[in-house]
Amino acid sequence: MDKKEQTKKLIVMSILAGKIMLQNGAETYRVEDTIVRLCEARGIKYVHSFVTPTGIFLSVEHNNELFSYIKRVKSIKIDLEKIALVNDFSRKFVNSNMTVQEGMDYLNEITNKKTFSKYLRYIFGGFAAAFFSLLFGGNLLDFVSSYFAGFIVLTALDKLSKYNVTFFVKNVIGSIIITIIAIIFSHIFIKTNIDKIIIGSIMPLVPGVAITNAIRDSISGDFLAGVSRGIEAIIIALGIAFGVGITLKTYILFFGGI
């Protein structure tokens, strides 16, 4: 195999590593770093990568030949384990004589790695929501109600993600479901506090990741990525506020008061 072919393979492998990280919610500066490090580890001198939350651009010069590669990345979800694994992989690849083919196999293994089973996620998501309502001063009945609300909303959102809805609509629907469940529970148990139930159960929707990544990108000098993630956070927050607001307003209009 000639050198040109090998360089191409290396580029494809580093793009794959970058794609896995970006798709699972890594900061863009980390993706850029990883791609450059992977290419430089095998003797390529001129590597420049530019990553935005929606795509990877890479340009490489080696032996008087220019290569460039653009990869559009869609459907960002959050899976921090995969980021950690690719991080480990890049460290290993740089410090050893792993061949490109081996690296490719390793990355494919990471892609196919199982996440926590979905029921475990629903169960613990419910606990997260329930303990939040306690954290904000809810009582035992609020705890139970938020557990159900959190569990049901995570299940519903998982089902919804099959239909390719945008994240704004997803958050609106999620918060509408939460508010309806909270209203129902506040009628079943008199002593519940509707505020605490809603606050606890919207926590799985709030844009914590988008906020953190927006900041971490901005301070590394990636203002484009920082701004676009910041807008994402604002839109999610608006979606949640809209969903809760419209449901409560409708309820007040029809039944008069909460």
Binding site: L80, F116, L120, M203
Partner: peptide
């Protein structure tokens, strides 16, 4: 709660 979230985020 944090543990719950760390499982949601895998």
């Amino acid at each position: 709660s944090t543990i719950g979230f760390s499982i949601i985020f895998n």
